[in-house]
Design a protein around this nucleic acid. Structure first.
Lengths: 340, 340
DNA sequence: CTGTCGAATGAGATCGATCTCATTACAACA
DNA sequence: TGTTGTAATGAGATCGATCTCATTCGACAG
């Protein structure tokens, strides 16, 4: 590919002049500028960003790490980040960590070698993260998404998961539910799930209801009805469950229906995240909607401000309760029908 | 950030020796090497990839462009590509085009300036693509995904959409359906949808059934029942419909159920793509599964071979019919119940 | 015709790693 | 002790764009 020197030669000028014709056209005589542009055209010259990056000590690239793109929450957020970043002249290097600490570490190291101008990370657990500790020591512009701010020392974009967990619980209580359980993926991996559970516990307690232990499923995004069966058939016999994410909720609803349960008549199910598809299912999914597009945009804008040397302290973004057909009033004293 | 020169100084050697300590350790005396490594450690030296890229004329970066990450098909494929690329030491620059030709053009231009080693593209319509024409003229390593090979002149990874469309249709015919319609998003934008429709037409004709005109919906991934109503209530009165992608099918099922139709009893619905979630719904989605992970892997491996100067001609990957509860046998002579 | 000022241009250094080629150092051997 | 061969190292160029500083050019006033 043609470089600036060959353009300059063809135009009969020096590299400096050729460069100016592009970056500071007003410093170049109109005639000369045209000669340069014509030469560039002829050689189909395309400026080499790598050289520009080396020279300017800035890559205009942002490193993004999400746990997985198989979960629409992250994919949809990434979509918003990409659009926003490109509109500001930045490119994204995208990686997935599978919530794996050693991969997280390698990925961040690689991105720092690439001299990205900043990092947007979603880690498994921001409070116990080897990567974050390393980064804290080097303090490049770095922002967490979805991870609660906590003690990590990095700014964070996301909703208030505790309040959101409480709101979800309140919503069910308002519908008349008193026996509510919560379902999550492998607990220890996710700080969000823990906070949402804490919100649930708070809300239950605020209504003098006793929170139940979290029901853990073996996978993050796929329900296993067998794990819930003891709870459903036990003496607590919940009339509603909250899942810590939408995929879990959707697949739980499917399993319940296939097993002959009616949703919401036999059991109300709430999700968490608000993925787009949830609206179009039947029953439509009642969920706490995280403003994914806003999160993606805010993440990029906040990071860009950090790159410019500011030290923002972004407020949590508002979540919205999206009501849906998967939640209804509890059946009338249903527990009586199975308790003696 | 410390550079190699400061490391060299601290270690009391020249830049060349310091560089060798990393890239050709066997050329350096053990003692010297240790001094260099210790100095690098002390300064927390991190090699600058931008400089390496400029020097080596190779970025180890792949430019990826997909229409949208809001559709799990692309997100899941991207997930597979990222894992595969990283395992080979490559990074991905990810962009979304919204099927928009002018964005496609800007994106590709930007990636070429970045001197990516290769491109993986999914364009709206490979046969009428301004970007592809431009690229053809410059011939960087470039690969299409999902787009049928066609006349574009670029290798392509994906399934045989025509055969897949025919297989879907055959499946329904085997179940006893004779009145089958097909539903798509905005037609003109997607070469895949066209091919799938062509497959449907072929299969119908092969069974002496008359294919119906495509029912177009205003959005790619969200069904609008009203668009289908004329077909359902008209004299053709299909007992089954095929959607050109899963999101369309899932949301159509939701709309149907909400309107009081039973799936599959009143209408069987097939999808296309095989996104993960489809399995866990009730009714589970009957669909043509594209091997997304295999496609992602094959895309990266094929592109890497192109980067190495080969000119591969990848075969279409096999699609699989995933049966599901959204398709059943047609109701018995249902047309008689509404025709006089 | 010369001096001056500003506009236009060019020469060379720079960013950081790495490669080539030359040089040094040291050991073995005559 | 001088020679030769090899291992180890260093000096300098290179990748491509851009910035600084110096120089040239042209016009115009004196």
């Amino acid at each position: 590919m043609a470089d600036l020197l060959s353009v300059a030669k063809l135009a009969g000028v020096s590299r400096a002049t050729a460069a100016r014709a592009f970056s500071n056209p007003e410093l170049v005589r109109a005639l000369t500028r045209e000669k340069v542009l014509k030469a560039a055209e002829q050689l189909s010259f395309r400026p080499n960003k790598v050289a520009q990056q080396l020279r300017s000590q800035s890559t205009q690239m942002i490193g993004v790490m999400v746990p997985s793109l198989d979960n629409p929450v992250f994919a949809e957020q990434l979509q918003a980040m990409e659009v926003t970043a490109r509109a500001s002249g930045y490119s994204l290097i995208v990686t997935t960590s599978e919530y794996d600490a050693s991969q997280e570490s390698e990925i961040v190291e690689e991105m720092l070698r690439q001299r990205v101008d900043g990092l947007v990370l979603t880690v498994a657990d921001a409070d116990n993260s080897a990567v974050l500790n390393k980064l804290l020591y080097e303090h490049p512009p770095c922002l967490l998404v979805y991870n609660p701010p906590g003690q990590s020392g990095f700014p964070s974009i996301g909703v208030d998961n505790l309040a959101a967990g409480a709101d979800a619980t309140h919503h069910l209580i308002e519908q008349g539910h008193t026996r509510i359980s919560m379902v999550a993926g492998p607990l220890l991996q996710s700080d969000r799930a823990r906070q949402r559970y804490a919100g649930y516990c708070q809300a239950m307690a605020a209504h003098d209801l006793i929170p139940r232990p979290l029901v853990e499923m073996p996978r993050h995004t796929q329900a296993n009805l067998a794990c819930l069966t003891p709870e459903l058939e036990g003496e607590y016999h919940p009339s509603a469950v909250i899942c810590t994410n939408d995929l879990l909720a959707i697949s739980l609803i499917g399993e319940l229906q296939r097993a002959g349960f009616a949703v919401p008549n036999d059991l109300s199910v709430m999700g968490f995240d608000g993925i787009a598809l949830g609206r179009h299912l039947y029953p439509s999914l009642c969920t706490i909607e995280q403003p994914r597009a806003a999160i993606g945009q805010a993440a990029i804008h906040t990071l860009l401000s950090m790159i410019n040397g500011e030290m923002p302290n972004p407020a949590p973004l508002p979540h919205v309760l999206r009501s849906g057909e998967s939640v209804g009033a509890p059946a009338i004293t249903p527990s009586l029908s199975i308790t003696p």
